[in-house]
């Protein structure tokens, strides 16, 4: 038999939202947050909003890859390097 998740207030859910979205909560708190969100429209919306914010941040940095000339320089650098840092 699975125990009922602990009941949380909205303020506790908001405090734990980032931990929930980052998948950093203990199983017990995660279950409690999930149970609350599934029944509280405000916290559900808040959760979706913060998720959208985090996706937006991630997307905005992904386009920036190392320039090809930098990759080439690093390849050459390690090919020619004879030093060993003991």
């Amino acid at each position: 038999m699975t125990a009922e998740p602990r009941r949380l207030e909205c303020t506790e859910v908001v405090e734990n939202l980032y931990g929930y979205l980052d998948e950093e909560l203990t199983a017990e708190v995660k279950a409690a947050v999930r149970a609350h969100i599934s029944q509280c429209p405000d916290c559900f919306d808040h959760c979706q909003f913060e998720r959208a914010f985090l996706r937006f941040l991630e997307a905005r940095s992904r386009a920036q890859n190392a320039p090809p000339e930098l990759k080439k320089r690093i390849f050459e650098q390690i090919l020619l390097d004879r030093t060993r840092d003991a």
Binding site: Q64, N65, A66, P67, L70, I74
Partner: peptide
């Protein structure tokens, strides 16, 4: 390398400095 470069960009705030930092780091 792409990860190292992106983080270097945010640390230095400048592409030229970020490239130097990445090169130093990788060496």
């Amino acid at each position: 390398l792409d990860t190292v470069y992106r983080v270097a960009l945010r640390f230095t705030g400048e592409p030229a400095k970020a490239q130097d930092l990445v090169q130093d780091t990788m060496l």
